[in-house]
Design a protein around this nucleic acid. Structure first.
Lengths: 111, 111
DNA sequence: ACATTTGTTCGGTATTATTGAACTATTAAA
DNA sequence: TTTAATAGTTCAATAATACCGAACAAATGT
């Protein structure tokens, strides 16, 4: 298990972010992380969106979020704890990420 | 050639929009349409992003933008003229679409 | 009618996504 | 110090999408 790659803030692209968000599971994970007080490990999301996901699939989704520059994953013992990079992202991309998450949450509430 | 499908505003989803924008060609087309005074036909974009695109590929990209609810295409004689649905989208999704396009344009300017 | 222009559809190929199984890394227990 | 348990990654096979050339369709002009 090699060290996890996190892009520098200047390497992050709009298309990369949008691609990461274009998957329902991934935007749900990110929205959940953004709404949460504390960082969460990956397994927290084994059941998301009313479907049980295989952990290999979940691992890929986290990798895509991480390599798009949206989240940071740090090893803490046997698990990874994940947090968003919202502050950095706001500096570089303005209100984009927040506007996406707010639109998504509004949509979810509307059912 | 059957009539072109355009979703109603309430059928449009955040994920659908983000998927449509996740392709560099498509976000470029949309940004160009949004920046333009007048609507444009599809062939305007046969050369975009320094690469010549086959018209079948371009047609698919327009279909995806259209079915995501981002653009409206109307037949005018032998061609289709395309325009964004920015006003409707703003009513439903707030500043999301504008924030995405502004972040994208800023990125493009930065090279 | 015939040609031209604009765009769509079809079908084969190429790329990307999903996931079970095997593996790695860390911690705890025996 | 093995042994087991937990958390997550990697691999490889399959499934789903995307790309694009060729044939087609629709509207207009000659």
């Amino acid at each position: 298990m090699r060290t996890l790659y996190h892009p520098n803030i200047e390497e992050i692209t709009v298309e990369g972010i949008l691609h990461a968000f274009s998957d329902p599971v991934r935007i749900d994970i990110f929205a959940s992380l953004a709404a949460s007080e504390c960082a969460k490990n990956c397994s927290t999301f084994l059941n998301i969106q009313k479907q049980a996901l295989p952990k290999s699939t979940l691992s890929q989704h986290f990798r895509i979020l991480r390599e798009a520059g949206l989240i940071r994953s740090e090893r803490k013992g046997v698990e990874l704890i994940n947090s968003t990079r919202c502050e950095e992202l706001k500096d570089r991309f303005g209100p984009m990420v927040l506007a996406i998450i707010e639109a998504y949450e509004k949509q979810q509430k509307a059912g």
